[in-house]
């Protein structure tokens, strides 16, 4: 019982500290504490260097989704609705979630490991002695870069996923191209695309914030850095999956109500 209380209390304290970090980052953003060059370096690291991971994930997800949907729909003679399912799923759910998870694994882990090592080797203290706020120099550029890179990567994953699904559906499984295309456009709304992009922006924030928080607060020693890295990936992935449900639930009526 006592152990459970300690776990909950640690968890709540962690959430509180992360909220304070987000507040500091927002205040620093308003103060224009971050250097544009640092943001660009991070956009390059998160965006350009995540290309292969995101492209492969997007393509194969689109392909397997097309194949699986076709196999089920074929039984009820609804073959031409296959691409519509692929498109709606990729835009509103699979595109942002899978991109978020892949980026959490690659970028979130790298952020936690880099900042954790900096903390262990006193580099963060050195930054502070050189009159540089760690939030300005380390957190804000990564947070901004993730907010920029993740929607772009998600859009790319969605495009590639739908394209790969089209190739499998039309080229391999023999679905009629004209009907498949027509149905896809008919059932994919602006709501789906907008929801995907909003989710991507939020997931970018989650990945960067969790990575930075875990890195800046890691325990000393190699074990501490290793643990922080693992915790960053696990916490970011779980946060993405849990928030995805609530975002879908909240955004769908909201965006539909806005008439999109």
């Amino acid at each position: 019982m006592g152990l459970h209380c300690a776990w909950w209390s640690d968890w709540l304290c962690g959430l509180g500290r992360m909220a304070l970090l987000a507040r500091d980052a927002f205040a620093s953003l308003l103060r224009r504490g971050a250097h544009p060059r640092d943001v660009l370096v991070q956009v390059h690291f998160m965006g350009v260097k995540s290309q292969s991971v995101v492209l492969i994930t997007g393509a194969f997800t689109g392909m397997v989704l097309a194949a699986q949907t076709f196999f089920q729909f074929h039984k009820v003679k609804m073959d031409t609705a296959t691409l519509a399912v692929v498109s709606v799923s990729m835009c509103s759910e699979l595109g942002p979630v899978l991109t978020g998870l892949m980026v959490a694994g690659r970028v979130g882990a790298a952020i936690a490991a880099e900042l954790g090592t900096m903390r262990v080797t006193e580099q963060i203290d050195a930054l502070r002695t050189l009159a540089t706020h760690p939030v300005d120099y380390l957190v804000v550029p990564r947070l901004l870069a993730a907010h920029i890179a993740l929607p772009l990567l998600t859009a790319e994953a969605i495009t590639v996923g739908i394209g790969a699904g089209y190739l499998v559906g039309v080229g391999l499984l023999g679905i009629d191209a004209a009907y498949a295309w027509h149905n896809m456009l008919r059932y994919t709304d602006l709501v789906d695309v907008t929801m995907g992009m909003i989710k991507a922006v939020i997931y970018g924030g989650i990945v960067a914030l969790v990575g930075c928080y875990k890195g800046l607060n890691c325990r000393l020693g190699a074990e501490g850095v290793g643990r922080a890295t693992t915790e960053a990936v696990v916490a970011a992935s779980i946060s993405i999956l849990v928030s995805n449900f609530f975002l879908t639930l909240g955004l769908t009526p909201l965006l539909t109500g806005l008439g999109l």
């Binding site: 080797t121 050195a126 706020h133």
Partner: peptide, 23 residues
């Protein structure tokens, strides 16, 4: 607070035990 301390720290230079160079 940390922001106010940044100004005071401009008066200081510090050599760390491990040198703490940005690698």
């Amino acid at each position: 607070n940390e922001r106010q301390l940044l100004e005071v720290r401009r008066k200081f230079g510090m050599l760390f035990q491990s040198a703490a160079l940005f690698d």
